[in-house]
Design a protein around this nucleic acid. Sequence first.
DNA 1: GAAACAATATAAAACGGTTTCGTTCATATG
DNA 2: CATATGAACGAAACCGTTTTATATTGTTTC
Lengths: 341, 341
Amino acid sequence: MKMTIKEIAKLAGVSQATVSKIINNYDDVGAKTKERVLGIMEEHGYRPSYAAQSLVKKVTKVVGVIYAGKINANFNHPFFVDVMSMFKKTMGAEGYDLLFFSNEKFHKNNENYLARCQHYNVDGCIIIGGDEVEPSVYELDQSEIPCIGIDLPLSGKHSGYIMTDNAKISALAVEHFYLLGERNIAFIGGKKTSNISTERLHGFKEVMKTYGLPVKEDWIKHGDFFEESGFIAMNELLEQEECPEAVFAASDLMAMGAVRAIKESGRKIEDFAVIGCDDITASRYIDPPLTTVKQDKDKIGKMAAYVLKDMINNQIEQTSVRVEPELIIRESCSEKKRQLR
Amino acid sequence: MKMTIKEIAKLAGVSQATVSKIINNYDDVGAKTKERVLGIMEEHGYRPSYAAQSLVKKVTKVVGVIYAGKINANFNHPFFVDVMSMFKKTMGAEGYDLLFFSNEKFHKNNENYLARCQHYNVDGCIIIGGDEVEPSVYELDQSEIPCIGIDLPLSGKHSGYIMTDNAKISALAVEHFYLLGERNIAFIGGKKTSNISTERLHGFKEVMKTYGLPVKEDWIKHGDFFEESGFIAMNELLEQEECPEAVFAASDLMAMGAVRAIKESGRKIEDFAVIGCDDITASRYIDPPLTTVKQDKDKIGKMAAYVLKDMINNQIEQTSVRVEPELIIRESCSEKKRQLR
DNA sequence: GAAACAATATAAAACGGTTTCGTTCATATG
DNA sequence: CATATGAACGAAACCGTTTTATATTGTTTC
């Protein structure tokens, strides 16, 4: 059923070498021979074996995808889904397939990322931001394998990263609050150990200072970028004696959780101003439509693909790209809403 | 840097064969030898090459993932994202990694799915429902390669599929409408050529008949399961002289589009009853929270993994699973809402 | 008609593993 | 002591390709 190059060669009455050369577009093959062999290959639906090819060539046309951090985390986070969608599309256009490593296997065999990449001999890989910097990520980062991080600052010679300008994200949010007269502003970030969370928090504190607003440590909470954690964080804020009326959540999902907490506590959502981050698809449909700092997910995915491809083909070194965020004003925090209060 | 089995063997002073046997857990290797070799492997971070292994073994521990239909379609549809998330997790626990085929490559080289699977020698594959049955899918379906379809009825000897009971989905929706007194019910389905769309439409017509309700062809629209198509379909419905007040959309995303169309047309959303399908995460957060027929995405993903695994390991034949849907009542169509009218 | 040159084709070694079948050696058996 | 037994290991063939070096043609050229 499944043909090998040997059988094709026999059928065509030529040597393996000739068939192989046809597959690989060598130019020392006669036109009519080529024609005939091509016909036979087509007829029998022959495809060269990936294993055999990648064993001898050193190229696989496969890139690995690693969701760092908690088991399976981020695979279904809307932000990463959108980024990966564009990444997949762009890499696909260049002829690359994507190998998603299962984290479960890692944990069971106590394996590391580098070993997996070597095992599959991937041309490169993309690492989707984990909560913290695992030793295993560092090892891969420092290796010869080109890799690029999403929301994860890699520093190796053959690495790079793409992420939004995190300080600016916070700046846009706080500035918007400030202009609308909000003064009691809380911050819900991701895990303390996560890099982007740190950058956003730092940016938040900086710009608060710039506007002369006080940063209350009690008003700084940490979640995990998913909805439930925003809900929990907001509940903690609501329980405090002095409760903030403005909340900047470092992800739309957490912002949605915060909104839910406010509603379920019996308070009126109109009395709060909420800004999220990411601009996931859902955010314009929820109630109230969410004001958010948009991350350009398409651009991030595309840039990741371009940079990775460049690293693979041209041994480009250490490239990192910062993408500009953009404020999207909707009703959860807007001028119109302010006037209602 | 990257070690081969030969080098490990030399370092340990044993033959390749012995090292290989240790890797593959043969029992004719002495305990102390094993210990020593294992130590050396560990020390040098040695991992056997996937290519070399899969060349000789016939097993790869990799399963292919195919998004059938339009380029890249469904990769970021929330329903499939959730299903795949659980599928990935479950397969991962069994030691499988997932290879996502790029559709772009398909189209460029005019390749077929079967050829790709053979090229990579995947142990099996999962096909995520396309809009229509492509010849390429049929070919794979009929092949020796175990594959299972999500929302795609495969019929080959080595194939199976998992999907929700589509007729029942429609039945639950219409029944709910009926009990709330709705009589003018429209249907927004997926592509006419898509199987699940056909099943849901058929179920819809059947149950409408059962309740003695008229089925107006003008009130049957077709989208593509994404938001925009629901928006367009609803606008078409609104333009009609006789406009339905109840709409069942075959996906939450289309339902969201329908809601948006109603709002943007200047009508009051309270005057309409909308039911979606899937119960994606966003549906409980939107305005109004969406009444929907829930599909058990976790179960679908899990079952897909179990069945596929079974097919790979035990040559089980043709297994298909129908999963029960469940009505989730929220405010877009509820008793409370009815009383407001 | 011989020499030189292209243009095509092939043989064979690699790539990094697995697995079958022997071989070796120590121990148990009668 | 001769033999059977079994544990531990190794030689070599094989998996399906690519690629280098070499061989075989057929044409020119002088």
